[in-house]
Design a protein around this nucleic acid. Sequence first.
RNA 1: GGGUCGAUAGCUCAAUGGUAGAGCAGCGUCCUUUUAAGUCGUUGGUUCUGGGUUCGAAUCCCAGUCGACCCA
Length: 488
Amino acid sequence: MSDIPRDISHDQHAVRRQKLADLRAAGTDPFRANFRTTHFSGEALKAHVEGQENAVTVAVAGRLVVIRDMGKSQFVKILDQQGQIQLYVKKDVIGDDAYVAFKKFDLGDIIGVKGTLFKTKTGEVTVRVEQLLLLAKALRPLPEKWHGLSDPEQVYRQRYLDVIVNPESRARLMLRSRIVSHMRRFLETRQFIEVETPILEATAGGAAARPFVTHHNALGVDFFLRIATELRLKRMLVGGFDRVFEIGRIFRNEGVSRRHNPEFTMLEVYEAYSDYRGMMALIRDLLTTLCRDVLGTDEIKHAASGQMINFGGEWREAKYKDLVRAETGDPQWFERSKAGKVAAAEKLGLQVHPGWEDFEVTNEIFSKRIEPNLVQPTFVTHLPRELCPLAKLTPDDPTTLDVFELCIGGMEIAPAYSEQNDPDAQRAMFERQAGEEKQNIDEDFLLALEHGMPPAGGMGVGIDRLCILLTGAESIRDVILFPQLRPS
RNA sequence: GGGUCGAUAGCUCAAUGGUAGAGCAGCGUCCUUUUAAGUCGUUGGUUCUGGGUUCGAAUCCCAGUCGACCCA
């Protein structure tokens, strides 16, 4: 290879390129196709029988992450899906030629080995290697071995490196998979049906958010990326799918922050012949079984406050208006004029936009002063009717809704409604909300409602935020494999 | 969008405006039960980019790129 300079010892990429070229020149395939493993690392560790050395044979494969070279023998470790396992490679076991070849392996290479299990004198179950193969040559070096990768930009852009060298990242992201998996099992055992609804929509409804726009060439029309799955899932209620859910990617064309990624994952679940009270029981069961079965504890440390969040005890229930009255110290808050509310909010140190409606001023107090302090699981019920146009009014108080917002760890985790199924009431709400922009009303959804939707409870669960909470992460980026960044 | 902070070897980090260093990794040596293995030696830099100030800039100034945090 004439394009490789003579002294390349300082350039790890060039050194590895040279090794690759040497392997090929010697007729070895550095990217071998087939190696059959018998065990993952964790399974192999369990397969060792106490007191019986070299009795069990295993074939394991993974990335070389530790090399401790002692001349004619080496202890090395490989990493696979289940973690690390130590290998003992001995010259007089594998033979001179194989040992020479093995010495050329680099940290980061992916290898497969076959051998027997034994316990070292320090008590670590280890594979005594009899055969080994290079399965994939790594041409780039791994990050440093005990500080790992800490540059946040590289952690997010090259997540594959982060999860190789940072065990806590690996564990956190694997925990997310188990959380989602638990949700599916939980709902399926309660006879909920998982469905998939369109991401490209002609009208983006079901929430108040700015959508992404894209274009379909063949049809010659613009589409929106969905901002919620709500209106599609309700159509399925009309169609007789009485218990449905979707775990789906939602897209909102808004800011990026510690709590916001432009695409995020939401569970939406709808149950016919239930209501917001039924949803309370459902989410409580879901979260307590999640804690018990996945985390193995019903107490989780809340990073921001240092408090322990207790999922096992009583869950507080409080009316939105009562919380606002208590926070403002004003029993007559909802009877005050808008000017009075604005003055009081500003006195609390909040910035109030001139164009805001009455309820928006109040809600600013809720989201800035009340919600962040709801650390223990709290159902905030009976929100003002202006806040959710898709829910039923409270029968004995037409200014509020039969809804709750479950807040935990100072975050809104799950809103739930007694779903509006009166097509005329729903149209009136849409029209009030749309104002001049009547073309944004989802007429097809209203048509579906006119066919009759069973009374139902419905709920959305922000999975990313739930994962922040349950994994103790500081940012949404830590629970999303590839968070959105500006292209580099 | 605004403010604050940051970017130096593959990685983690040092360096009063005065010769850019360390650990790990790499390269070469010794070592057949190591645990951040040890040992001896050693290579490696467009200091994010572009301007400016200065006898002299990683360092000071301006602009930009990317990121983090806070605010909107």
